[in-house]
């Protein structure tokens, strides 16, 4: 059983929580590979997918996860909800809560929204990405993908290349990697790096070529044009030349090292197509792991309502 009621971010997860989620996800991966993928496990439960910010992959992944567990889902999108009429988040949640739902899965533009929802409702809450803050299920599916490939997480050397400062993926992935004992290096221009990476338990490096040959996992972040407030980098072309992973750079990686990316990929910017489609790239493995890992998180959170252990 997990030590948390809600999945808001990864620092609140213990090493054992993470192990439980990944182990449970392995069982669901098996279910996801058979012909009949639907389980009756959460029959009769209701889960609200509250997506206040556009999202395709995370939303689809969560919806499939809910449906394959047999739960009923209700999708509420920001543009079609009363939020556009000026209803506050708390009122939206209270309204939905009054319809007796069991879980909220929330994607929000503003950091802290899932936390507010958790305080408002008695239902369980999963953060599906909030602002520049956190994206815990992405971190967990990344860990799952790494563990599946390397058979371990402890001692893995992971380099995260790109805009760590504005990335919610980093906000969840770095603490999770530290909890399981991996080493993390943040790579990027100074404007993309946190002022004190050591506070996260990570080291930092300004040049990708200095660390590339030592890494087991090269985790490329998307250049988020929509989150750049002006002049963080002089030009996308310059960024691609200095930090992009092309075939020439990839050739200097360790033979067994892998490339990961949370998607969607800006082809030709942080990754060339040649690298993104190479056998080293686990990008689609990450997407595939997403459904199983989300099923595990939902299952473990909703199952934790009683501590009577099955006989």
């Amino acid at each position: 059983m997990l030590s948390v009621r809600n999945l808001i971010n990864t620092p609140s997860l213990t090493r054992d929580d993470i192990r439980q989620i990944l182990d449970t996800a392995a069982t669901f991966e098996q279910v996801n590979s058979r012909t009949i993928k639907k389980l009756p496990t959460l029959r009769g439960r209701t889960i609200v997918n509250l997506f206040l910010e556009p999202s395709t992959r995370t939303k689809s992944s969560f919806e499939l996860a809910c449906k394959r567990l047999g739960a009923d889902t209700l999708s509420v999108a920001g543009s079609s909800s009363s939020v556009v009429k000026g209803e506050s988040l708390v009122d939206t949640v209270l309204t939905l809560d009054a319809m007796n739902v069991d879980m909220f899965i929330c994607r929000a533009k503003y950091a802290g929204s899932p936390e507010i929802i958790a305080r408002t409702t008695g239902a369980r809450v999963i953060n599906a990405g909030d602002g520049k803050h956190a994206h815990p299920t992405q971190a967990l599916l990344d860990l799952y993908t790494m563990r599946k490939r390397f058979g371990r997480l402890e001692g893995l050397r992971v380099g995260i290349v790109g805009d760590s400062l504005h990335s919610r993926v980093v906000g969840s992935l770095v603490p999770a990697l530290r909890t399981v004992g991996a080493e993390v290096t943040l790579v990027g221009p100074a404007t993309f790096l946190p002022a004190a990476p050591e506070a996260l338990g990570a080291t930092s490096c300004a040049r990708i070529d200095d660390v590339l040959g030592d890494l087991d996992v090269v985790y490329m972040l998307r250049v988020q044009n929509e989150r750049l407030d002006g002049a963080a980098i002089p030009s996308v072309r310059e960024y691609a030349a200095l930090y992009g992973l092309d075939a020439r750079r990839a050739a200097r990686m360790r033979p067994e090292a892998v490339v990961m990316h949370p998607g969607p990929v800006n082809r030709g910017v942080e990754l060339t197509s040649e690298v993104a489609d190479s056998p080293r790239a686990l990008i689609l493995n990450q997407v595939n792991a997403g459904v199983s890992v989300r099923m595990a998180a939902i299952y473990l959170l909703l199952g934790g309502e009683s501590d009577v252990v099955s006989d």
Binding site: Q20, T27, S306, V309, S310
Partner: peptide, 21 residues
Amino acid sequence: LDISLYRDDYGHRLSPVLHST
């Protein structure tokens, strides 16, 4: 066969460890 996911008493009794089928 692991039947934890098919039990009708899910929610009252949690099966925290899933075995593989």
